[in-house]
Amino acid sequence: MKGSPSVNNPRLRAFANWVFLRKGGPHRPRLLSPHVVFPAARKLEEQFATIQAEVDALVARRTIPRYGNFDPVRAAQVSEDWRLYYAYMFGQPNELAREDLPALLAFAESTPNVVNAMVSILEPGVPLPSHRDPYAGIMRYHLGVRVPKSNPPRIRLDRDYYTWKEGEGVVLDVSFEHEVINESDESRIVVIVDFRRPLGPFADLLNRALLRQKRKWAPQFVEASRYDVMHDA
């Protein structure tokens, strides 16, 4: 399946986003404690030394693909220089991640509300310009893995700011407009886990149904990642 899940079914997506964001509206928090909205994150944080070692080894031996390899349409809007390794996408594992990121993949496969799991790399000076995620049915957890000590990058979500810290997790409501400000001289590396937004029963059923439809895009993301990695092996 080729294309972009970011531009698929715009009218249905707009209706779903209205349903998902109706409660709380513009007053909902931008930055949240993962232990409140994503308690399973404790399992990742308890394994931080293992996760960090896995990611360090991955980066040392693999060329991590750029976002344009996966979704050229969305990359043109966000950044073609953002590097991503998808371990798990819309419920489908990248089988290479069983070797590269076994702890992260095991977490994704054993946690029912996880949608995607990946490693995100911003190289020195690479920012992410202002944008918002087009689908509001997910929330995004970040775990800092490697963060420059000098002039560390930070993310702005609407009016709030957050600076990553190694071993610290945070949940971001990326349905708000956001950007990454990066003037560092080293790479910023985080683990990203997307999970289903906590919702009431009807909205959650709608979210699950729409996310099942998005599974058709998973091979595009997983295979693009595998192609680049295998060519570097």
Rank of each mutant, 00 (worst) to 15 (best):
M1F: 06
S6I: 04
P10S: 02
L12D: 09
N17Q: 11
W18A: 12
R22I: 04
K23I: 06
G25V: 05
H27W: 11
P29H: 11
L31Q: 14
H35P: 00
H35F: 14
H35W: 06
V36H: 15
V37T: 11
A41V: 11
F48L: 05
T50L: 15
I51H: 00
I51M: 05
I51S: 01
Q52E: 12
D56Q: 15
D56Y: 06
L58C: 10
V59E: 07
P65D: 07
A75P: 03
S79T: 06
D81S: 13
W82I: 01
R83E: 15
F90P: 02
Q92V: 15
P93E: 14
N94F: 05
N94E: 07
L96N: 00
D100L: 10
P102H: 09
P102K: 07
A103C: 11
A106Q: 14
E109H: 04
A117T: 10
V119Y: 01
S120E: 01
V126C: 07
P127M: 04
L128D: 04
S130W: 11
S130K: 14
D133S: 14
D133M: 10
D133A: 15
P134T: 15
G137E: 13
M139Y: 06
M139G: 01
Y141R: 07
G144S: 05
R146N: 02
P148K: 01
K149I: 01
K149M: 04
N151K: 11
N151M: 08
L157S: 09
D158F: 12
R159F: 13
Y162L: 15
K165A: 10
V174I: 12
S175T: 12
F176R: 08
I181Y: 04
D185F: 04
V190E: 02
R196K: 14
R197V: 04
G200Q: 11
G200A: 13
P201A: 12
D204F: 04
L205N: 13
R212F: 08
K214M: 15
K214W: 07
R215Y: 06
A224N: 00
A224E: 00
S225F: 03
Y227L: 11
M230N: 08
H231L: 14
